[in-house]
Design a protein around this nucleic acid. Structure first.
Lengths: 228, 228
DNA sequence: AGATGTGAAAGTTTTCACAGCC
DNA sequence: GGCTGTGAAAACTTTCACATCT
């Protein structure tokens, strides 16, 4: 029962990835509501906006503390701040982007990262022709500069946006220069022996899952005449 | 026990999203193995490459049929073809890309979609200055052309890569022109009354989940002196 | 021997339902 | 009356372990 500054946190372990994803979602929604000038919200209203149940919302919060008031709901500002603290986005994060191709360019200009306190502070690419040029004032560097810049800029996360064949090599380099996590957009499973965290983002999976749902629905005829 | 052409399918319902994600993963790995000239694989070898258990792999397949041979493992070509059929990617899919900004540009040039049989066959944008120009021969059209082109090109999936404020409006338009699914990259929950399928891809979530893991680890000191 | 396919067991996540507070 | 916080129940997912086939 040891108290802490805000929000009366308790356990921080045994939290599932799904819970974290939902917290991330709540956070974005609360941000929007704040901008709209709202000040409180109930678990069921928040649930509706996410397409889940209110019990799920309350259960998610209850792993971390008591943020609401019975009969009244949650204060949006306070709830949002607590979620920021839980997710670790209450402070600024500098990112290293590796790979200055189309995907890297899109990620660099993706406004949501900045909005959540993540900033691409350095860009690296293998291609010599790109070295020295910049995007909005952020220079593109050779891979060899990585160690120095990661230390100087206190970069703890590397964003991997290189072609498939380069992924593993770059991941090892990122591990060596000492980042704590890698956001991997390349479609390969990284083999990392060091104890950093990896999150894979595979843009095909969502598309294939859509294709599956659509195809399955089409197949729901009582009898499929197309085969045999 | 009614037989069908290939793979001896049985039920196709009660399949979780997680299973579909893993199938998608197996598929990519099998594709790679085929290119390397491999011809068979065991559930445990496939499991190792995914970082899961062999029982999980076998269970995933068993929902759809018997694709392996006891004592020998799975034939890679046949297994891959069965997965393609399950996922519905055994045929070609034309996509409509809505939003010709940075993200749209990156998605258009993202090689993995094409590799899995998805092709962006038409591009739409609100910005008149872009109309008529093209990317690799695929023209950018005004929104008004959508209905006609979706029909002509038999487009069943729309890829939504517009700024946050435009998402809902475009989703309604896509629903009206009759696509069966939307891959939504815009960070808003779409309110769709029609019965099409939606998959949301939020690039922030993976980053925030990384931030959470890294922060949590840092906090694993026996006593946190930073607060109170 | 070697590996699949699958019921049963274990584990995890979500939902229910209600006590407790506003 | 309204809404949170939370144990208990239900639903779902993964792992175990072994019969079965090559």
């Amino acid at each position: 029962m040891r108290g802490e500054s805000s929000g009366d946190f308790h356990r921080v372990d045994g939290i599932s990835e799904a819970t974290i994803r939902r917290l991330s979602n709540y956070h974005r929604i609360l941000d929007d509501l704040l901008l709209q000038g709202e000040s409180t919200i109930s678990s069921s209203s928040l649930a509706d906006r996410c397409g889940i149940t209110s019990a799920q919302v309350r259960k998610d919060f209850s792993s971390f503390g008591s943020f609401g008031r019975r009969g009244l709901g949650y204060g949006i500002q306070g709830l949002r701040d607590n979620i920021r603290q839980i997710l670790g986005i209450d402070s600024h994060w500098n990112l290293a982007l590796v790979g200055a191709g189309n995907l890297g360019h899109a990620l660099f200009h993706y406004g949501e990262f900045t909005k959540q306190g993540f900033q691409i502070a350095a860009i690296f690419d293998r291609d010599e022709k790109l070295h020295g040029s910049d995007w909005d004032g952020v220079k593109i560097h050779p891979m060899g500069d990585m160690k120095q810049m990661v230390e100087e800029l206190n970069i703890r996360i590397g964003v991997l946006a290189v072609p498939p064949d380069g992924g593993q090599e770059v991941a090892e380099l990122l591990a060596k220069v000492g980042v704590d996590g890698i956001l991997n957009f390349s479609p390969v499973k990284l083999q990392i022996e060091s104890d950093l965290f990896v999150r894979n983002v595979n843009l095909c999976i969502a598309l294939e899952s859509l294709a599956y749902s659509i195809s399955k629905k089409s197949k729901l005829k009582p009898f499929d005449a197309s085969l045999s």
